[in-house]
Amino acid sequence: MGGRRRRKGLNENKENMKKRSKSIEPSSISTIDLHSSRFNIQNLNFDNYYQEQRIVTSQHWDSFLNVLRTPLPSSFRINSNSQFSEDIRSQLENDFLHSLRFETVEEDNVDPVIPLPWYPENLAWQSKFSRMQLRKNQTLTRFHEFLKLQSEIGNITRQEAVSMVPPLLLDVHSNHFVLDMCAAPGSKTFQLLEIIHKSNEAGSLPDGMVIANDLDIQRCNLLIHQAKRLCTSNLIVTNHEAQNFPGCFLNRNYDAMEPDQNIDQLLFDRVLCDVPCSGDGTLRKAPELWRKWNTGTGNGLHNLQVLIAIQGLSLLKVGGRMVYSTCSMNPIENEAVVAEELKCGLVL
């Protein structure tokens, strides 16, 4: 329940920040200045803790902090199952990639919008502009309207670049049964569904499916609402505590004469275990976390994270794959959790 309260609190903070931001009309698009004026982006407890953890070398510490204090670029993913996906990609490659260079004056010579080189087929893109910059800068109006329209009709999904990584590492195929244990609001779920459909033969439905679970019923409702854009029948949404997710059963060859003869326990080919966390890896998009950061949050979530990971492994097929991920940099929430699974003999 600690993770649930944490996420609810973060959502409330974000809503409050949105309300306050409406009254701010900056004279330029310098979101870094906006960050600096509204938040104290320094926390000595954070510095001391992560220097002791040595997550970066002492020579790179100042550079590391400077990155954390810059706004997060906006990123999005083209829906590979959309009939307009090639047109959208072509418009980005042949129009915006070039036109934005002339519409914006930048000193660092960085392209305003680029495809993420590690994402297949140029289907994921990143803009150097934050969401606030896209909203406020009139020069970017056409690009912003393009993103809004394509997002509303389901051709693209706004998603952070780092959030796109776990589904790729799962190596999902069209016949796989996938469990997303902490799914809402669903960007990773939609990505998994797109992969399942795209890896299937054209004109046929995939044999696999995604079960998307979340503890928060309101977030489940949001996920269902968003999923309507995908027009898929290969999704089931459930509402359970991830650490107590129940065993499922599957009747692959239903026979009305012998309905119980072909029922087997459903073990998953792939499990995505993206657990509740302290979220200190999101400082670039949520700078209000700087003043709130303390070691207690990560320590308090460690046991819940271990329990969710253990349950995910127990529902995994022999030879299957589970990806464990967080939005935190804290080794207590990452390496220490994996170490606990190794100690239990659950990971090979």
Rank of each mutant, 00 (worst) to 15 (best):
I217C: 08
T238W: 15
T189K: 12
P185T: 05
L205E: 12
P206R: 13
C182K: 06
S233I: 06
L222M: 12
I224T: 07
C182T: 15
A184K: 09
C248G: 00
D207A: 13
S233W: 02
N221Q: 09
Q191C: 10
P185A: 06
G208Q: 02
M209D: 00
E201K: 14
I236V: 11
A212C: 07
D214A: 02
I211K: 00
I217G: 13
F190H: 08
G247F: 08
T238Y: 15
I224Y: 03
G247N: 14
R219H: 07
N221P: 01
R219E: 13
P206C: 11
L223P: 07
N213S: 03
A184G: 14
L222D: 06
R219Y: 04
Q191Y: 15
F249C: 01
C182P: 03
S204E: 13
G186D: 09
M209K: 12
N213L: 09
I224F: 02
G203P: 06
I211S: 00
D216R: 02
T232N: 06
P246S: 06
G247Y: 06
I195A: 04
I217S: 15
G186W: 12
I195Y: 07
V237C: 13
G203M: 11
I217D: 12
L235C: 08
C182I: 09
C231I: 07
M209L: 12
S204G: 04
F190I: 04
P185G: 04
A242I: 03
H225A: 13
P185W: 03
N213K: 10
F249K: 10
M209T: 01
I211Q: 00
L223C: 06
A212E: 06
L205Y: 01
I211H: 00
F190C: 03
K188T: 08
P185M: 05
S204P: 07
T232W: 03
S199G: 03
E194P: 09
E201V: 13
D216N: 11
S233L: 07
L222G: 07
N221Y: 01
K198F: 01
A184W: 07
L192P: 01
P185F: 04
G208E: 04
I196E: 11
K198T: 08
S204W: 05
L230V: 04
R229D: 09
L222R: 14
A202K: 14
E241F: 03
A227V: 04
H225K: 13
F190S: 04
G186S: 14
I211P: 00
M209G: 00
R229N: 13
Q218Y: 10
I217P: 15
P246F: 10
Q243A: 15
F249I: 04
I195V: 14
K228Q: 14
L235P: 01
S233C: 05
L193M: 14
D216H: 03
A202L: 11
R219G: 09
L235T: 05
F190V: 02
P246W: 12
H240K: 00
A227G: 03
A212I: 06
C182M: 12
T238S: 15
P246G: 07
E201S: 15
C231Q: 12
